[in-house]
Design a protein around this nucleic acid. Sequence first.
DNA 1: ATGTGACTTGTAGTCCGTA
DNA 2: ATACGGACTACAAGTCACA
Lengths: 70, 70
Amino acid sequence: MCHIKKRFGQNLRTIRKSKGFSQEHLAYAAGMDRSYVGKVERGEVNLTIEKLYLLAKTIGCSPKDLVPED
Amino acid sequence: MCHIKKRFGQNLRTIRKSKGFSQEHLAYAAGMDRSYVGKVERGEVNLTIEKLYLLAKTIGCSPKDLVPED
DNA sequence: ATGTGACTTGTAGTCCGTA
DNA sequence: ATACGGACTACAAGTCACA
């Protein structure tokens, strides 16, 4: 429960890299600040589902791909 | 993108009912306020992933089951 | 290109009601 | 049992500077 943010961030980072995005590119494309994306990936942010969706959509994956299983 | 919250709420409501939970029971078991669960199901809340996870765990389903596909 | 801290503003989330 | 609202507090959102 307490690690969901970190695992979410790891998922995001893995998929982001596999798509060839930099944090900067992703942030810009999603209309977010670069530092915010970094915080999400480091598990420092308990982000909302709308941000979850925006990131998934921007990066080109399903929201479910970012959500840790357990 | 703008209807995520509503679709999420619908998913939660459907699964909650299929498990035989009332909003009150779910809220109590998850340590949340009764009115909050209602707001989530009505799509009035842009909830965080930790709440998403807590609700899924309490209701006995995967977090992915609550997340709308698109 | 990314990590981190400090900060302000908006809203998630709580707690109390009424119907 | 649920919908809905008001008022409040905690924290997510969003920005920036510097390493």
